[in-house]
């Protein structure tokens, strides 16, 4: 039996411990796959999207995800993962807002 924590350690914000993905999560996701060559790939993505990597707005993440999906096949999978996590966060957060607004 593999332990899958709910919520994951360190995740203290967001519904069910799911924080909305940001550029840091995108960078970390790439680091898990690419290890020592991560920074080269990350800076390439930042150049393509004309970002500094310090942005915190959702639009910046959307641009990086699109750039990842247009990149090599493994980076594209990683971008797709982030897109799914964003969709899950937004769907649940929206649901909570709807519940809250009717209360």
């Amino acid at each position: 039996m593999i332990d899958l924590p709910h919520p994951p350690p360190g995740a203290t914000s967001g519904p069910y411990g799911l924080p909305r993905p940001d550029l840091d999560e995108a960078h970390l996701a790439l680091a898990e796959i690419y290890a020592e060559i991560t920074d080269r790939i990350w800076h390439q993505l930042l150049r393509e999207t004309r970002l500094t990597g310090r942005e915190t707005d959702p639009d910046a993440l959307d641009r990086v995800i699109e750039a990842m999906k247009a990149s090599d096949p493994i980076t594209a999978l990683c971008g797709r993962s982030l897109e799914i996590r964003v969709a899950a966060f937004d769907a649940i957060a929206t649901g909570r807002e709807l519940i809250g607004s009717s209360a």
């Binding site: 919520p7 069910y16 797709r80 982030l82 969709a87 899950a88 769907a91």
Partner: peptide, 28 residues
């Protein structure tokens, strides 16, 4: 299973599941 999310590639009776999205976080 992608690196940190699950992608639904095909299914039957999935309507309304996972808020209607394409999948969900891996930890779920």
């Amino acid at each position: 299973m992608l690196d940190n999310a699950m992608l639904i590639a095909g299914g039957h009776g999935v309507d309304g599941w996972l808020r209607g999205g394409p999948g969900g976080p891996a930890e779920w």
